[in-house]
């Protein structure tokens, strides 16, 4: 089997994108009626459903913090999400780690002191996994939290970037991710330009990091446009209903 050429000399990636292009984004909110807020997002073929419950009273008294809320994130990856079925246990270390990333990201953005002694539950379900899972999870959570009406200081937009065959590229898909690329995920507050999360698990030369980060930042800004439009469309929709 020959190695897949991740970037052709013509400058196209395996799926036909150019290095600085995002995949097609589809997103919507309020997809679940039961939850306080919910959202569904697709980054190409990576599909994530997020549901937010709360803020409500903390379930275990001992966990309650007197002056702010706590966030609880649970991440579940469907066994059918990849082409080979694989069941993951709830105690899968990777998943726990990833949910804690999501949690930490949002602890900085949600105005938690508005909800003392309460709890916000975020349930994430990855339906289809085609790379950049963390990015999709964070973006879905942002939409769901907004949908739930929880006060946040800003959007949180996440984007991955990686170095594929000598060129920096954003929004890596599964094939690109799994062939040894150095990958960075950042989460950005688009209005202030602050970064709340940088996650990288592989080695990358220091000189190249800067370029990668700035590219990922551009990607986040683009994503922000998309997410914001979804929210505004939804708001417009609701506004119309009120008028009628």
């Amino acid at each position: 089997m020959s190695r897949v050429e991740l970037l052709t000399p013509e400058g196209l990636r395996v799926d036909g994108r150019r290095p600085a292009e995002l995949r097609k984004i589809t997103s919507t909110t309020s997809v679940l009626s039961q939850a306080d807020g919910s959202a569904y997002i697709e980054h190409g073929n990576t599909k994530v459903l997020a549901a937010v419950y709360g803020p409500c009273e903390v379930r275990h008294r001992a966990l309650a913090v007197h002056d702010r809320a706590i966030i609880n994130v649970e991440l579940n990856v469907a066994p059918f999400s990849t082409s080979e079925r694989r069941r993951r246990t709830k105690t899968d270390k990777r998943l726990l780690e990833m949910s804690s990333f999501v949690k930490q990201t949002f602890e900085a953005v949600v105005m938690m002191n508005l909800y003392p002694r309460s709890q916000i539950d975020v349930y994430l379900q990855v339906i289809q996994h085609d790379g950049a899972m963390l990015q999709a999870c964070i973006n879905a959570t942002t939409l769901a939290l907004i949908d739930a009406g929880i006060a946040m200081s800003d959007y949180v937009c996440a984007c991955t970037a990686g170095w594929i065959e000598r060129e920096p590229a954003i929004d890596l898909n599964y094939i690109e991710e799994s062939s040894d690329t150095s990958e960075v995920t950042i989460a950005l507050l688009p209005k202030s330009g602050k970064v709340t999360l940088v996650q990288m698990e592989s080695r990358l030369h220091v000189d190249k990091l800067e370029e990668l980060l700035s590219l990922a930042r551009d990607g986040c800004q683009q994503l922000y446009g998309e997410l914001d439009r979804t929210i505004r469309d939804r708001a417009e929709d609701l506004a119309k209903k009120i008028v009628v």
Partner: peptide, 25 residues
């Protein structure tokens, strides 16, 4: 860009058949 998908089936080492879905822009 149009998005389509490229779907094909492959046999794995374990002799199971899996479905591969790839995006094409």
């Amino acid at each position: 860009m149009h998005k389509t998908e490229n779907v094909h089936f492959r046999k794995t080492n374990k002799n199971t058949v899996i479905k591969r879905v790839r995006e094409v822009y």
